[in-house]
Simulated scan of single mutants.
Amino acid sequence: MKMTAVSIKLALYVVISVLAGVVVVNTLTDPIGHATDDYHAVFTDAAGLINGSDITIAGVRVGTVSGVRLENGLATVDFDLREDQRIPADARAVIRYADLLGARAVAIVPGPGGAGDLPPGSTIPVERTAPALDMTSLFNGFKPLFNAIDPKEVNQLAGELVAVFQGESGTIASLLRHVVSVTATINSKDQVIGQVLDNLTAVLSTINSHRDDLKALLDGLATLTDNVAASREQIAAALDSGAQLAGTLSDLLGDLTPTLTRDVRSVDALAQTLLRNSDGIDAVLAATPGFFADLNRAGDYGSWINIYICNLSVTLASTPTDLGVGPHSAVCR
Rank of each mutant, 00 (worst) to 15 (best):
G114P: 03
P320F: 10
P125Y: 02
T257W: 00
D279Q: 11
G290T: 15
A46I: 10
L49Q: 03
L204E: 09
T259N: 09
L270D: 07
F43L: 05
G170R: 05
L200W: 07
A330C: 01
N296W: 08
N155E: 12
N306H: 13
L28E: 03
P120C: 04
A75L: 00
L49G: 03
T185F: 10
N26Y: 12
D150W: 02
W304G: 15
R92V: 00
R177L: 07
P131N: 10
T259A: 14
T183N: 13
V162W: 03
T123Q: 07
A46V: 05
G167F: 02
A229R: 12
R265E: 10
D80L: 06
D30P: 01
N147M: 11
R232Q: 15
C310V: 04
G302A: 12
L214W: 03
T259C: 02
S250T: 15
V60A: 08
L245G: 01
S209M: 05
I16E: 05
P88F: 00
V182I: 10
G280D: 15
N140F: 08
A107R: 11
E233P: 03
R69Q: 10
D150I: 07
D78Q: 05
A89Y: 02
N296E: 14
T44N: 09
V203H: 03
L81S: 05
F291Q: 13
E168V: 03
A148N: 11
V23K: 09
L197N: 13
F43S: 03
Q85T: 08
P112F: 01
S174L: 09
D263F: 11
P125M: 04
R61M: 07
G114R: 05
M135H: 08
P258K: 07
S303M: 13
D198T: 15
V164W: 02
I57M: 15
M135K: 12
R82F: 02
A105Y: 09
N155W: 00
T185W: 06
F79W: 01
G59R: 03
Q234T: 12
I55G: 06
K215H: 10
A103Q: 09
A130N: 10
